[in-house]
């Protein structure tokens, strides 16, 4: 069997693939966090819980209404997005003039409530969710076996990430968003309904998290705590990439996924801490993150 640096090639590529899959989820989630922080000035600690909700809503739709994967990919993010809009309108929007800390505490509390509610009804053991028929199986690429569903996860999240990036960087709506990140008040004085824009931004970013959750449902088991560990890593990624940079959070998300995969191959003991080591180093050398601009 072929070996690379003393490691069997299929093992190395297998871990790289897992890294890319995780990286895809990291990218989708940190992208949303970056957008929310940029436009709303809120550190959304509920992001992991909303990702979990996406997966759970898909599971519930299947078990109670018989609605399958493909419709759920759209419907679950919509439902969770509307839930996010209600949160923003009734709670978050009251905190915008206060310090970041308040938004963080509120969303942290919300995460506990959401997760606690699901644990109460469904326990922590987790429910299986089968991928759609057409995405089962896989291909032998010669150097490794590629499960079709995993390839789909990577492609789908890349498309959504790039689409979001284009939306923000290349459209008129995106120009409003970027301008509002810099000076919300002036954008409003130009006649743009900034509060509405903030509400929709939160709804959209939350829907992205739920979309990641639906994608994740067939990969991991659907459990109320599936977002807990993930969100901690994603926060580290946001720190590494630099808050507020969209492209930065996408690239960092994918990059960290790959680094974790490599670490798991060559030095498994460090695979769950490597991201925090990188975070510490980046904080020392580049406090604004790899892609971040200093904030005044």
């Amino acid at each position: 069997m072929q070996e690379i640096l003393g490691v069997p090639a299929p093992l190395l590529f297998g871990q790289l693939l897992i890294g890319l899959i995780n990286g895809s989820f990291y990218a989708l989630l940190s992208l949303g966090l970056a957008v929310i922080f940029g436009v709303l000035n809120v550190i959304n600690f509920a992001h992991g819980a909303l990702y979990m909700m996406g997966a759970f809503v898909a599971w519930l739709l299947l078990h109670h209404l018989g609605i399958g994967y493909w419709p759920s990919l759209l419907v679950a993010p919509l439902i969770v997005g509307v839930f996010g809009i209600v949160i923003e309108r009734t709670m978050l929007s009251r905190l915008y003039d206060l310090d970041h800390l308040y938004g963080l505490l509120l969303t942290f509390g919300l995460a506990l409530i959401i997760e606690g509610t699901f644990i109460n009804f469904y326990g922590v053991s987790g429910q299986p969710y089968a991928p759609p028929e057409i995405l089962t199986g896989g291909h032998n690429l010669g150097f490794m076996f590629l499960p079709t569903y995993r390839a789909w996860v990577i492609v789908a999240s890349l498309i959504v990430c790039i689409g979001t990036w284009l939306l923000v960087e290349r459209t008129r709506l995106g120009a409003y968003l970027r301008a509002a990140v810099e000076n919300r008040e002036l954008v409003r004085a130009f006649g743009i309904n900034v509060p509405l824009m903030m509400t929709l931004t939160y709804g959209f970013a939350v829907a992205l998290a739920a979309f990641a959750g639906v994608l994740a449902a067939p990969v991991y088991t659907v459990s109320p705590i599936m977002g807990q560990h993930l969100i901690i890593v994603v926060f580290a990624i946001v720190v590494i990439g630099g808050l507020g940079s969209i492209l930065g959070s996408i690239l960092t998300g994918l990059g960290i996924g790959i680094v974790e995969g490599l670490t798991k191959t060559f030095y498994p003991e460090a695979s769950s801490t490597v991201v925090f080591v990188i975070m510490a180093i980046v904080l020392i050398l580049r406090p604004n993150g790899l892609f971040g601009r200093p904030r005044e």
Binding site: A175, R178, A179, V181, E182, N183, E185, L186, R188, A189, F190, G191, I192, N193, V194
Partner: peptide, 24 residues
């Protein structure tokens, strides 16, 4: 009226600090 509604009535504002957006 809120600022966006004032602007919609036909008043435009050029602030003292100019407010050019660096990311645009």
């Amino acid at each position: 009226l809120k600022p966006d509604k004032v602007a919609r009535r036909g008043i435009a504002y050029c602030p003292e600090e100019r407010g050019i957006f660096a990311s645009l």
